[in-house]
Design a protein around this nucleic acid. Structure first.
Lengths: 193, 193
DNA sequence: GTCTATAAACCGATAGAC
DNA sequence: GTCTATCGGTTTATAGAC
């Protein structure tokens, strides 16, 4: 779709990852995208519109890099798929870092900006349900309510670890180890006895 | 100490909880405190000074409400103490909400402001060690490294849940239920078999 | 659709009276 | 110590040409 539009959104993700939602200046975004401020307002109406569309954009992008896999790779078991999907957000590559930083910022900004909450809630719901479904494949006997709760915790844990990683309080390897341990603990809690 | 000063800091905590660090406007703070902007600059030099003193103020306050307990209350078992300390940050009272919001803001701001990281890392370390010690009293046979990891996860989970709660994605009761379940899952993972 | 130019609002900070 | 009044820089947002 509108490739100029996409160019601005990619630039917005970079600027947010660098300066935060709080630090995003429309003029800096314009420079980063190589367009004028006027064009940005033409496309996105106002500052909040920029933010909302960027949230949607990084969300789509995360879905993409979450699902892309080698065609000839061995099929993953549910446990491996679960680990992979949760660990994908904890990688020290430019794109993942951008997505994680932008996502964390949008989440933190939503605390003070109700306009962002609806989109955020919708995206979170999809994400939680996806994880709950995978958990259900690893623990088929577990009741749905417990699966949902474990999924909410694991995604919340991921956000917490991600923020600590990005704020320099946690090395990426340690963060990944902790995430794996969290999965194990939740599966342990869901175990039939 | 200067009671007028404290009055401004209390007002600042309220404004930050409502608008965030980035959304704090000196004029709004002045109105909230019932003083003039000039007086605020007289006391705190500049906007950064306001922020620094407010964060210090909030931190002291959090320590207080974390440790104060009834003198004649029945002594808590380690498990109860663990739950209590982790659930204290998930309460819908003005003071806790203010503190949690400010803490989340501080954490989120540190992603883009290295100057904040040192204080944050120190405070986090104390917090994690406290939780690890409590976990050790519930599971005396668990190795120290596993206790430390579980403590890091539980505190990260708390931050994740807290942010979701404050951003409207999670009711406070549900957040508390999830936190309790997280404690249970971690204890389950630490169980001797 | 895109740009340039600029209006309008906002906000941090200071001066000076009391 | 405290207030009123205001300046000057910054930033969002719009008008109008192309």
């Amino acid at each position: 779709m509108a490739s100029r539009n996409t160019r601005i959104l990619e630039a917005a993700a970079r600027v947010i990852a660098r300066r935060g939602v709080r630090g995003l200046r429309v003029e800096e975004l314009a420079a980063e995208a190589g367009v004028s401020t006027g064009l940005i307002y033409y496309h996105f109406k106002d500052r909040t519109g920029i933010l909302r569309h960027t949230l949607e954009f990084i969300n789509d992008r995360a879905e993409r890099y979450t699902t892309v896999r080698d065609a000839d790779a061995p099929p993953l078991g549910p446990r491996e798929e679960l680990e992979q999907i949760l660990l994908l957000e904890l990688q020290d590559t430019a794109e993942v870092r951008e997505n994680s930083a932008a996502w964390g910022e949008l989440r933190a900004s939503a605390v003070f900006d109700p306009a962002l909450r609806e989109d955020l809630a919708r995206a979170t719901l999809v994400w939680v349900q996806e994880v709950a479904a995978l958990l259900g494949r690893v623990r088929p006997m577990a009741p749905a309510a417990q699966l949902a709760a474990a999924a909410e915790r694991l995604t919340a844990l991921l956000e917490g670890l991600s923020t600590r990683w990005l704020s320099g309080g946690l090395g990426i390897d340690h963060a990944r180890t902790l995430m794996r341990g969290g999965i194990e603990a939740e599966l342990s809690g869901l175990e039939a006895r």
